[in-house]
Write a protein that binds this DNA or RNA. Structure first.
Lengths: 119, 119
DNA sequence: GACATTATATCCAAGGCGGATATAATCCCC
DNA sequence: GGGGATTATATCCGCCTTGGATATAATGTC
């Protein structure tokens, strides 16, 4: 399953994969920066380990949900170790589908009175 | 970790565990009925396998999130094979916390423009 | 009484995860 | 400019959860 086929077959998205895609929604980022972005965005609740991050990135590349860019956001001050990644349209679609799926879960929980009201 | 301690340590809840707790939110149910309830409630998207179900039930019992009841909803027509389960207050709290966590994920995805609007 | 369905339980292999380890480039400060 | 902390990527290990297969037995149906 390289980079085609229905998005549904990718769901449910692995939690780490979802976080990475969301972190790349706004800007291209390199791996280490993704870890920091996710931690910051979740208030420290989600701290991707290095092992999880780089394995997830490999899978996302194979699935065509992200791609590596040679562009450097700030060409002058650069760090040759960094590898920057960009979300693809397909990656955006996958993240959107996953978000919808999560939203449905919350809806079901609400229908069963688990959640007081809507947040 | 038998059945005490902060709810947060239980999060994230395994997907199967969350579905089971939600299915038990309204009524006591036996294992097989939980599978059917989850499948019905999700429009067939989530079909818990038998292996997943019974192992998840064991964990939930150990964690004090559900308990087994001897009560039979309909005492007359009964099936001696069935084992009925009931959600505990702690289980309800765990499901609520997990739903909140999921809701936060959706919010983050929205903040990054992944999701068009609110569902 | 035979056969499909219901119902619980266990085993196996696959996949995702955190944490540890390795290696190297970059930064900072004295 | 030399040395140590930090940044950055990568791989390995073991644990946990999962779907699917298998087993066993009670119940329902005709």
């Amino acid at each position: 399953m390289p980079d085609s086929g229905p998005i549904d077959t990718l769901l449910p998205l692995a939690p780490a994969a979802f976080h990475i895609l969301v972190a790349l929604a706004d800007d291209d980022r390199h791996g280490y920066a993704i870890i920091q972005e996710v931690a910051a965005r979740t208030g420290g609740d989600v701290t991707l380990s290095a092992g999880t991050l780089y394995r997830s990135i490999q899978r996302l590349l194979e699935q065509g949900l992200i791609l590596e860019t040679r562009e450097r956001p700030v060409p002058k001050l650069d760090d040759q170790r960094r590898r920057y990644y960009r979300i693809t349209p397909r990656g955006r679609a996958a993240a959107r589908a996953e978000a919808r799926r999560l939203q449905q879960l919350v809806q079901i929980a609400r229908a069963h009175g688990i959640v007081p009201a809507r947040a």
